[in-house]
Amino acid sequence: MRRRLFDALRRAQAEKRAVALVTDLGTGLQTLVHADAQEGDVALEDEFLPQVRDAIRRDRSGIVEFYEGRFFIQVQNPPLRLIIIGAVHIAQALAPMAALAGYDVTVVDPRRAFATDARFPAITLNGEWPDDALAALAPDHRTAIVTLTHDPKLDDPALLAALSSPAFYVGALGSRKTHAKRRERLAEAGAGEDAFARIKGPVGLDISAVTPAEIAISILAEMTLTLRGGPKAKGEG
């Protein structure tokens, strides 16, 4: 890889832009494909670019064949994101665990006593109201959103915003009873059955979790299962 392309790859990573490095496995020639440009040893044909963009969108690196050539597409997407509503005890466990799993984590809580750097070292904190925060953070299909406050004033606006986004995972802490009441409130606010069904509640896989850290594990496990597609993925290596 030329040093110039390596540096461009690192710049894209630092600026959190999605790119793909395409390598011709026969010749070793390489092209870095950006959202609206490409650079490198050789310009890819217009006919080939849709395959590269599709790989970026699906977040799937792999070998593709194009005419006589074999090409490897290395997708470099920005990190997955996790937005946690509620700077509570469970969030103190979930935030660093998710960061370790590769997520860019933001904790949203307008209550100053909760969202402090001392409680969340090295985690991005956002003191806006959840609906304003989510509007600004613009969750995409590579974002997970989890509400943990137990307070409908904070959780409900966040969930309504989450359901109008393409977030791949929306989870809400609370018992079955709490979740049933939530269903009624959100229905009044205009969330239909299909939208409500997207919410994982009670949040997390049932692993009989008790402590905040164990609950965080069950949430991260459910996020992983949702992201990776469940039993189908087993056996694919």
């Binding site: 990573q13 977040d59 799937r60 690196s61 997708v75 470099q76 997407n77 920005p78 990190p79 997955l80 799993a101 590769g102 997520y103 590579r142 992201l227």
Partner: peptide
Amino acid sequence: MAEAAAEVAS
């Protein structure tokens, strides 16, 4: 792949 994003960064 995505899961590798943070790790590939390092």
